[in-house]
Each structure stands twice: as structure tokens, then as C-alpha cells.
Amino acid sequence: MSATPTTLSESVIVTRLRAAGCVFAEDEARLLLAAPVSPTELAEMVDQRISGLPLEHILGWTSFFGLRIEVDPGVFVPRRRSEFLVHEAAALAGPGATVLDLCCGSGALGVALASVVSGIELHAADIEPAAVLCARRNVEALGGHVYQGDLYAPLPAALRGRVDILLANTPYVPTDAIGLMPPEARFHEPHVTLDGGVDGLDVQRRVVASASDWLSPGGHLFVETGEGQAATTAEIFEAHGLSARIAASDELYATVVIGTLRT
């Protein structure tokens, strides 16, 4: 007769996570222990974390903007700094606004915005099949729509000229800098969600180039970028008919360029 597995104690989990280099071992241990799983499954989850799998992919969710967002393995994990982009968008989004979350990943940005702006019409798109499946669970629960394809390509024509708020957390890491990112990102998130090309702005350029076709008169585009890239991103906005300003949060180490379609 086999013995019943014993649940790992919090102290043991913390010790093992610390030894593996997990900076927030105590917080992670509490989250793992709170998961509704058997002792055997808990031990497997701890082993997965020690092997380098992102905690969010192990749990199946992450906390973002005070919400629980489902995040599947192989899907980009929304960073807390991106909450600043949502705050900036919320300040300009009126009730009932038409919102497009481009390069949506899990759909976290659009879902977060919907939590503070009433009655928005939410649309989201991503090129990654795994991200689209994940985003559909998060976005469609709010009555939104999710499309799979490259940037604007899969969007319905009826959206042209109607988007009041365009959220675009595009990849902005220069190709040569990806090797410096934490292993959790490099090995467990799709390369396409990280690589922004030689200067990190390739995807931003493509988003901005066509934004005016989709924005409503006076509509706004929000793009997260690096502090050192922001001035160039703003120049790209201006070159494509958008007045641009840069907003930054020292607390979240976040920089967002906000463009408004000139009318």
C-alpha cells in the first residue's frame, strides 16, 4: 500500500524557490499553496517553477490591474508596468468607446480598460494562435471579440475609422538585447512577442503607419516603449498624422507614447 503524499510546507517551498533564484520566493510559495491541487500536483508545480517555468504559466493566471487574467503556457505574461498604459487610456476613454487591443496576448490591456470604463465595445487581435485562444476566454467573457492574424489584417472592415482607443503593447526589445532578458521570457514566451527588430521599433512602425485608417476622428493610440526609444516613437507618430506626447511613470518604470489623430 503506497503512502499518501505529504503536502510541502511553505518553508520548504520557500527554501527550494530561493535556491533556484526566485526573488519573490515567499509570495510565490503562498500562491502555489493556495492553488486547488493535490499534494502530488503541488510538488509537480514547485518542480516546474524551479526548472524555470513562469509562475503565471504554472498557475494559469496572473494578477493585472487588480484582475485575475488567464495566461496559458506559451502566452506572453502581461507586465505590471503595462498597467500605466491602461491608466493613461482610461483618462481619455469615454463610456461606450470602441477599443482595439492590438498584439493583445492574453487580452489583459483591453479587459483592464473595460473594468474601469463602462460599456466599451472591445476588440482584440494577435498573430499567435495560443494567445488568441487565451484572449478569447478573457475578452469574450465581457462580450468582446478576438481575431487571429497579423496586426490589422484580421479585423472586420466595419471597424475602419471607428476605433476611439487603440492599445498596442507591441514588442520593443531590440533583437540583440533579447539575450539579456530573464530566462523565463526568453525560453517560455514566443519570440515574436519580444523581438522588436534592430532598434526595437519595427512593429511599432507598422502599427503607427496604418493607425489613421482605423482610428475615429480624434481617436487615440497608446504604445508602450522604452524610455530611450520614446522620442523616436513620438517622431514616428508625428510623421503619420498623429500628434504625440510622452507619459512616464517612475513608480512602474513605464513609458507610453500617446498619439491623437489630427482632424
Rank of each mutant, 00 (worst) to 15 (best):
C104T: 10
N169Y: 09
V71K: 11
L85T: 02
E251M: 10
N138L: 01
E227Y: 14
N138E: 09
E121A: 14
E235H: 15
G226I: 04
V257E: 03
L100Y: 09
L32K: 04
H145G: 04
R136G: 14
R137Y: 05
D199H: 04
L8D: 08
P95H: 03
Y253W: 08
S243E: 14
S82G: 02
V14F: 06
T7G: 12
L33H: 01
R16W: 10
H240G: 12
L167E: 00
A131M: 13
A3I: 08
T255H: 04
V198I: 15
H191V: 06
R16C: 01
T62Y: 10
T62A: 15
R18Y: 02
L113E: 11
S115C: 03
S243G: 10
T98I: 09
I165S: 07
P171N: 10
F64L: 04
A141C: 12
R245I: 06
T6E: 15
D101N: 05
S243N: 08
G218F: 10
E83F: 01
T255A: 05
A25G: 11
G200N: 11
T193V: 09
G219D: 06
L221A: 13
S243H: 09
T255Y: 02
F65L: 11
R80M: 13
F187V: 03
A108R: 06
V77P: 01
W61L: 11
E28S: 04
A112K: 02
A34L: 13
